[in-house]
């Protein structure tokens, strides 16, 4: 290739610039937002995590001290970790199982699919709101609906599930599981992608329905399961509103619903320990990143891709 040739192949600067300007012109709002509202704050929050910084005064550099304290000298951090992990490890599988089971049931070609689908989807649309948390608080309180139903049906006088530290977290798990609808919709969409002739071929081969489910549906659905699992896990780590409302922002009773985000909120906006809270935030980011990476690494052992 001669030099003349190469220069020939490039339009002059003005023309190239015109194309670039169009692209960057439209991207500008996002780009500004990304730099000012995401990138900049991410960097500065990492810096803050290495300082002692409150509402008054300026940030004082203390190196890794915040992180050291988190790891070695902060029992509430470990409580929050335990609560959050329990919540994630219970709510995500529950949601997945419900979502998949209902999706498979709905995919049987029953009439009224749209109505059922709407009903199951509704809770995940409104489940994050304060109103639902308030409702939950009532349902699981001592004289709440659950206990009314239990005593009416079984004559069992239940405790106050919300204010009992050994059950309070599970009410929140249940609230999360109640919102399996959007995962279900994603599963339904995935199920519809599976070509019908696969089942026809399998039926001709004499495979039973159970076998078809295990040998065809599940493997072909693994990418969707994987995707849902990742998204749900990330979301579960970020859960906040329900715990806040149910516990009046305290994470109680006795820190039994102290979600990580709630602890983070308290440190930042109740105690105004911005430096320490930033360190907490980064620990959360790393945890989420770690779990996401772990899932992606595990994917090649169980997720089935066509190509």
């Amino acid at each position: 290739m001669s030099i003349a040739d190469a220069s020939n192949s490039k339009p002059p600067l003005s023309v190239r610039l015109r194309g670039q300007l169009g692209g960057y012109g439209f991207l500008l709002p996002w780009l500004l937002g990304f730099v000012v509202l995401t990138l900049g704050p991410a960097v500065s929050s990492f810096y803050l995590s290495l300082t002692d910084f409150g509402l008054m005064g300026s940030a004082k550099w203390i190196g890794a001290e915040n992180y050291v304290r988190i790891a070695s000298d902060d029992p509430r951090f470990w409580t929050a970790m335990k609560v959050t992990f329990t919540f994630v490890l219970l709510s995500v599988p529950l949601k997945l199982v419900f979502a998949l089971a209902i999706a498979v049931a709905l995919n049987k070609g029953l009439r009224g699919l749209t109505i059922f689908r709407a009903i199951f989807y509704l809770p995940s649309l409104i489940g994050g709101s304060v109103a639902i948390a308030v409702l939950w608080r009532q349902v699981f309180s001592g004289d709440g609906v659950l206990n009314q139903v239990l005593s009416a049906l079984f004559g069992y006088e239940g405790p106050s599930w919300i204010s009992n530290p050994s059950t309070s977290l599970y009410t929140l798990v249940l609230l999360a599981a109640w919102q399996f609808g959007s995962s279900m919709i994603i599963f339904l969409a995935g199920l519809r992608q599976i070509p019908t002739d696969m089942y026809e071929a399998a039926s001709i081969d004499g495979a039973s329905r159970r076998r078809q489910f295990i040998k065809i549906t599940l493997p072909l659905l693994t990418p969707v399961i994987f995707f849902n699992a990742v998204i749900l896990t990330i979301d579960a780590f970020k859960a906040f509103t329900s715990a806040f409302v149910v516990s009046d922002g305290s994470g109680g009773p006795i820190d039994s619903t102290l979600f990580y985000t709630l602890y983070l909120y308290q440190e930042a906006f109740t105690n105004f320990r911005f430096g320490y809270a930033s360190a907490l935030a980064w620990v959360l980011v790393v945890i989420i990143a770690f779990f996401t990476a772990l899932s992606f690494m595990s994917a090649k052992y169980w997720v089935h891709y066509d190509d």
């Binding site: 040739d5 020939n8 339009p11 023309v15």
Partner: peptide, 14 residues
């Protein structure tokens, strides 16, 4: 990528 396109005698590449 290379060469010249002319329409009505005028170069058009750009």
């Amino acid at each position: 990528s290379g060469g010249e396109l002319a329409i009505g005698g005028a170069r058009m590449n750009e």
